[in-house]
Each structure stands twice: as C-alpha cells, then as structure tokens.
Design a protein around this nucleic acid. Structure first.
Lengths: 344, 344
DNA sequence: ATCGTCCCTGCAAACGATTGCAGAACCCCG
DNA sequence: CGGGGTTCTGCAATCGTTTGCAGGGACGAT
C-alpha cells in the first residue's frame, strides 16, 4: 500500500456518481440495484483506474476480516505442511486468508500468537497442536471465535475436530505384524499428554487384546517427545526389558527412526531381527533404510475437512461441535518381515 | 471478532475521558502526552474490559497493514518451511504478520495471490519462487510494494535478494569429488529458467575448469524440474552418454535421489560405482540409503536475512537494492567415495 | 494582577469501505 | 391527468483508530 491506490471515491468521481453506487456495482450481491448502464461505466472506470478494493477497510465496516488464524507447533515438521495446504486451499477458495503462526509447543508462544490473531480480528481459528488438557481452552472460550482442532484433539470435547482414527491405525499396524507371525510386539508410544500419543497407545493395547494375546503394559515404552532421540531412548527401554521382542509399533515415523538407531546400536538388523512400523508416512519414508512400513495418514484431506468444518462453524455458529475421524491406511514397505526363526 | 470486543470508546467511557486520550495512552509513542494519573486509569480500565486494539482499524488510519505477503512455490517442499520460519521469526519480532500463499509454480496462481496481497494492502512482499525472467516483474513495479526475493533471483536485477552462493556450492561439490580422485564428473542440472539451476550449472563448469580439467558440455544433463523423476531421467541421459562417469553432482537433493533410482535400475551401486552429491541438505538426507553427501544451505538464515532486508526496504524505500549471498557448506556422508579402481 | 508558557485533553476529520433510508424519476394504469 | 408502484441513486452514519489543531487551566514570571 505504498502507492496511491485508487479508492472507491476516485472511481466515483471519474464516473460522476456517488461512492455508494460504486460500492454497489462492485459487490455482486448488490449490483442488481443499479442500472446496467451506470454499472458498465463504473466497472470500466474501476478497471481503467486499476482500482483494487481495500479488503481491510471493507472488513472494518462489515466486521468480518475474512481471515483465519492457523496455529501449528512447527511448520518445519513435515507433518504440518500438507495439513496447512489442505486448509489453505479450501479457505482461499472461500475468500479467506489464512495466517499461520508457530508455537514450537510452547504455551507462551501460543498465547502470544492467539493475541495477535485477536488483534487481527480473525473470523476463525484452526489449532493443530493442542494438548489433551490444553491451557488455552478458557482463552478460546473467552475469545468466542469459531474454532476447529486438527490432527490432535482435547479431552474435554465440545470443540469441532478433525483427526486421524488413531486406534484404527494402531490396529492396522498390529494386525499386520500379527499376520506376519510376530508373537511379541512392543509399542514405542508418543507423549501421553497428546491425544495422538494416548489414542495410539490405547489402540495398540486394544488391538493386542482383540487378537486374544496377553496384554503386557510393560510392552509399551513412552517417548518424551516425537523426536528420533526420544524414540531411540524408548526403544532402548523396551528392548532392555524384553530382549525377545520381534516387532515394534512406533507412534510416529520419527520414533520409528529412533528405533532404527537403537537397533543399529545393538547390532540388530531391521527387519531381519526386529520389524518396525511407523505412523504418519512422512515424505521420503520410502527412502529410509530400510524403507519404512508405516500407517499413512491423509494429512491434506484432514486439513481440507478441518477448513470445511470451520467455514461451517463460521456460517452457523450454533451448530453443535462434531468430530471427524478420517481413516488411515497401512503402507507396507521394507521395515517389516516375518520374525526370525524360532521366535514366532 | 464474533463477540463484542471492547473498543477504545468503551474504555474512554469507562474512564470518563475522550477516546483520543485512550488512544494516546495505549500508544507508547504518544503516552508521554497524557498525565500519568489519567494514563494509569486508562490502562487499568483497558485491562479490566479486556480491551484488545483492533490492528486492522488502526492500519486503516495509519495506512500500514503491518502485514507482508510471502509467496512460495509449495509449502510441502521441505526446502521452504525453514525459510518461512526464518522470515516469520524476524517479522513477528518487528510487529508484522506474514501471510503466505503457494503458487505451485503456476504463474496464474502467483498472479491471483499477488492480487489478494494487494487487496490486503500488504506493506511488503517476499517472493521465494521467481523464475529468471519472471512475468510478475512488471506487476510488482506497478504495485510499488517493497519486495525482496529469496532463494531464487531474477536476471534483471534491481530487486533486493537473498540467495545461496550457488557457484560456491557447486565448487564445494566438485572439489570434494576431485579430491577423492574422480576424473570424470557429470552434472544433473536443474531447470535453467530458475536462477539456482543456471547458477549451479555455471558453477559446476567453472569449478571443473578451475581445476584444469576438460570442460565437456555433454557432461551436464538438464532436468525438467526439481523432482526425483526428472532426476532419474537426466541421470539416464548422462550415463547413457558417458558410461565411464564415476561421479554426479546433482543440482538438488531430489535430483540426487532420482540418480539413486537410475543407478539402482542399472545395477550400479552408490557410492561404490558412482558417487552422488546433492544440493540443499534437505531434512532426513542423512537417512537416505546411502546417506546423501550434499551441499548444505542455511535456509533459515536465508529467511532471516530476507526479512531483515525487507524491513529495511520498508523503512527506507529509496535505498538501492542489494543482494546477499550466503555461504553453503559441504556435508560429507555416505554417497561419495573414491572411484572404482582403474577409473581414477 | 496580567501575560506568556507549557501541559494536558477534547474535537473532529480522516482512512476506505458498506448499507438503511429516503427521495427522485419514471412507468403504468385507471 | 392523477395516483401508486418500481427502480435507481444519493445521503449520511458507521466500523475502530489516529492525529493535527485548538483551547482550558495551571503556573511562574514580571
């Protein structure tokens, strides 16, 4: 906005009509109120002057910023870009602009970002990184802005959310390993304060049980974060406790990668000695060594659904919250195989 | 902005002063104009009412949106998130909000995004995906918004830019291979309409020449895009023409991955038969098989510098454009080794 | 006591749009 | 020719801030 953008007044003056007439012409919804001839002259003048409506000014009057805030933990985490693109694609389509902020999983950063969003009077909010008992919740209520959760959800409920069906994903992984003949499967769980960590863990245990196997709580080691180092750490705990383990379901591809590391450290080969299944199917998971068998999550779709839900919530603020659960798929690659002989 | 946000008027009424006084109190720059006692009462009331300034309304008056548009080809390309984060971190620090749009390398999408940015009256622009002779250039001039290029630049010059020193990067790769004893090195170049593709190619040839080796134009195959498929294709062309090639410098990690594929297809092993060097050091390049030796580019830093340059350009629109070139580093991993015997 | 200064505060006009209301012009019909 | 109804356009207020200008009051100096 450095140059002298032409305003609605400039156009009005050029045509010799009142600014309000110009406004009416330029808004599809009100164009029918003005005569075709005047409308034509206005459009012509607008084009000639290179008029671009000032969406911000319009928003001031209409009290709609046509803007939504998207809060994610870390854009550099390959999990999120597809979600964001999904969100963005339907939002732009609908005339909204997404503004995104990273929290780095810090509550303080999240608060600040939320304040910035509030200052911009966003029409809606998408939160991708909530924890199960999120401290932001009261603030959200206070803000009174339509909100949808994506990827992770909260325990409390009451907020629309779009998440992966994590329990189903865990079951996919477990059943695959079971089918291969593994008798003793461990789980490297994600942080339990995150809904994904908890749900995948619960799903894992449920799947084991559903198969009629003994459920040993000790067969799950919880990682402190979704990072390779934490995965290696948890993998070590697990293998120390259960040397006869032949397969691991990791709650996340990065944790799976950590398991790779720990297996290598022990001189064990994947998948020959121990099979590993990841979760997410992050980009280039097929390029790892070995290529990672993992639970594929349709991230872009999740983003798309979230944005749709948000638009719905903006249009009809009183509709009750609903949760959409999208189905994951198992992608079998090179990190899973039959268990070593004598260990079935 | 669904709920009834308290406005400056509400605060004014609560305290019994004029709105303008409230405004003055709330702006650090003008606070000294009002008496400390009144100021205290205003701040108290503002806090009590949960007042949040409406940045949009303020921007309308001040003609500054405190917003900058960031145009990138594709957020899902692992190259860009670090750049965006770098940009965002310094921009938020400075009180600006970044809004990002993806172009998918389509000129039409870029145009639309630019229009949306214009409608939002962005104070500045960061373009990460320009081509050497970019059709957007005239539009940018017309817009008259401070702009900086990042990652790629244009031939024309005249626009501030922050890019990697691609020639230096190519030289790093070539020298490394030369030092290992490779006598015949090929280049899988990136699209030549992109400055990175052109600069890396030129740098490659220059480095070969600088080493006193014969420069064969045929030792470079140009890929149609920065994607694995295109890399495999170009790799095939290269190896068909020069079966005795023992090393390849790829203009990009994805192209390098494509070379992996082509080598595998031919039953050649990397690095035993052919060494491969990538460019970018994308996330998890160390996890590929083999771990990729590649030219590391400090993407976040590039983003940071770009944002700084933009802030500078916004503050002093008349300062001449300058280009910042940041230095890359070679990261040696498992995809390079001495050439096979008898082929040095 | 008067005058000039300096603080502080209020007034009102922007910024660029949207929109309810009212009135002008026109048409049609009786 | 008059009355009623449409259709089109203008007027002015409004959204929430910022800011130049002016005026009121206090205070010190003469």
């Amino acid at each position: 906005m450095t140059k002298k953008h032409a305003s609605i007044h400039d156009v009005a003056r050029a045509v010799g009509v009142h600014p309000s007439t110009v406004s009416r012409v330029l808004n599809a919804r009100t164009r029918h109120l003005v005569s075709p001839s005047v409308a034509a002259r206005v459009t012509a003048a607008a084009r000639r002057l290179g008029y671009t409506p000032d969406q911000v000014a319009a928003g001031l009057r209409t009290r709609r910023s046509s803007t939504v805030g998207v809060l994610i933990p870390d854009l550099a985490n390959p999990l999120f870009p597809p979600i964001v693109r999904g969100i963005e694609s339907v939002l732009t389509e609908a005339g909204y602009t997404a503004i995104i902020a990273n929290t780095d999983n810090a509550a303080a950063r999240a608060r600040e970002a939320l304040e910035r969003f509030a200052a911009r009077r966003v029409d809606g909010l998408v939160l991708a990184g909530v924890v199960r008992r999120d401290p932001l919740l009261p603030r959200l209520r206070a803000l009174g802005v339509p909100t949808v959760l994506v990827n992770r959800t909260v325990d409390a409920g009451g907020i629309p959310a779009v998440v992966n069906d994590d329990a189903a994903g865990s079951a996919l992984a477990v059943d695959h390993l079971l089918a291969l003949g593994h008798a003793f499967i461990g789980h490297v769980a994600g942080p339990q304060r995150l809904s994904t960590g908890a749900a995948r863990r619960a799903g894992f245990l449920a799947a084991i049980k559903a198969a009629g196997r003994a459920v040993r709580e000790s067969a799950v080691a919880v990682a402190r974060s979704y990072e390779t180092g934490a995965g290696a750490q948890a993998g070590r705990t697990l293998l120390d406790a259960h040397p006869r383990l032949t397969a691991i379901v990791a709650a996340n591809d990065l944790l799976a990668l950590g398991c790779y590391d720990e297996l290598a450290r022990r001189g064990l080969a994947c998948p020959r000695d121990v099979s590993v299944v990841g979760f997410n199917d992050m980009p280039f998971a097929d390029r790892f060594s070995p290529p990672l068998t993992t639970v594929h999550i349709p991230h872009r779709l999740i983003g798309v659904e979230a944005a749709r839900l948000l638009l719905e919530a903006i249009a009809h603020p009183e509709t009750p919250a609903r949760e959409i659960r999208v189905a994951p798929e198992l992608v079998v690659r090179g990190s899973t195989a039959r268990p070593p002989r004598g260990r079935r």
